[in-house]
Amino acid sequence: MDLNDGLLGIGARIKHPTFGEGIIVGMDLSTLNVFFKHEGDKEISRKFDGLKVLESAQEADTGLDLKTVEAALKRVLKEMAGISQPVAMGGKWEGGTLIIKPATADLQSKEVPIDAFFHKIVMVRDRLRVLEQNINSHEKLNDADKVHMQQYISRIYGSLTTFNILFADKEDHFSSK
């Protein structure tokens, strides 16, 4: 395919033999940045011969509808802000109360709805995941520093395993591994 014929440009729809249909979202002298619905963003060499142009950049409808913008925003927020999928609390705890009772009889106990407590535990987990991602992608940390900091995060996860009884699904449990 002759890439200088004006068919390829930002907004062009292409078909890749492995990744399927995609839209060119960026380009430079040697590569195309293509977003594939099921594969996400991929960088493809301009010299790759396996691309088929489905719709040129000039033909592409560049108008965005609200659903497209919402889907893109949700994807970005999920990836960048660490928003997790909804996590279910075990049914036996729903509507329950966590009672924190001091050893001294003259002090008042504290009651907290388990739903609120569970939400706080899930938020701690989500923020640890974001911290973990930031450490792993940090430009100035070397691999030894990343491993060292990761060990602390693993220990924190291990300390939080006590709260696994609150989760409905084992896949949501804390694990030090």
Rank of each mutant, 00 (worst) to 15 (best):
106 D>W: 07
106 D>K: 10
106 D>M: 04
106 D>G: 02
106 D>E: 05
106 D>L: 09
107 L>T: 15
107 L>Q: 13
107 L>K: 15
108 Q>G: 04
108 Q>K: 07
108 Q>D: 06
110 K>A: 10
110 K>W: 06
110 K>Q: 08
110 K>D: 10
110 K>M: 11
110 K>G: 04
111 E>Q: 09
112 V>Y: 11
112 V>G: 08
112 V>T: 12
112 V>N: 08
114 I>P: 04
114 I>K: 08
114 I>M: 05
114 I>L: 12
114 I>F: 05
115 D>Y: 04
115 D>P: 12
115 D>L: 13
115 D>E: 14
115 D>K: 09
116 A>W: 07
116 A>E: 11
116 A>N: 10
117 F>A: 09
117 F>H: 07
117 F>L: 07
117 F>N: 10
117 F>T: 10
118 F>P: 02
118 F>T: 06
119 H>P: 01
119 H>K: 15
120 K>P: 03
120 K>M: 07
120 K>V: 06
120 K>F: 06
120 K>H: 12
120 K>S: 11
121 I>E: 04
121 I>F: 08
122 V>R: 10
123 M>Q: 08
123 M>E: 13
124 V>T: 13
124 V>S: 04
124 V>Y: 11
125 R>K: 13
125 R>F: 04
125 R>P: 00
127 R>G: 14
127 R>C: 08
127 R>S: 14
128 L>T: 10
130 V>H: 03
130 V>R: 15
131 L>R: 01
132 E>N: 15
133 Q>H: 14
133 Q>I: 11
133 Q>P: 05
134 N>R: 01
134 N>H: 01
135 I>A: 05
135 I>S: 02
135 I>C: 02
136 N>W: 00
136 N>I: 00
136 N>T: 01
137 S>E: 13
137 S>Y: 07
137 S>R: 14
138 H>P: 03
138 H>N: 15
138 H>M: 12
139 E>F: 05
139 E>N: 13
139 E>W: 03
140 K>Q: 15
140 K>C: 14
140 K>P: 08
140 K>H: 15
140 K>A: 15
140 K>I: 11
141 L>M: 14
141 L>N: 06
141 L>D: 06
141 L>C: 09
142 N>T: 09
142 N>K: 13
143 D>W: 01
143 D>N: 04
143 D>H: 02
145 D>Y: 07
145 D>P: 02
146 K>T: 03
147 V>Q: 08
147 V>D: 05
147 V>P: 03
147 V>N: 06
147 V>M: 06
147 V>I: 09
147 V>F: 04
147 V>W: 02
148 H>I: 00
148 H>F: 11
148 H>D: 08
148 H>R: 10
149 M>E: 00
150 Q>E: 11
150 Q>P: 01
151 Q>R: 09
151 Q>Y: 01
151 Q>T: 09
151 Q>P: 02
152 Y>T: 00
152 Y>W: 00
153 I>V: 08
153 I>F: 02
153 I>P: 04
153 I>E: 13
154 S>I: 00
154 S>K: 01
154 S>Q: 01
154 S>C: 01
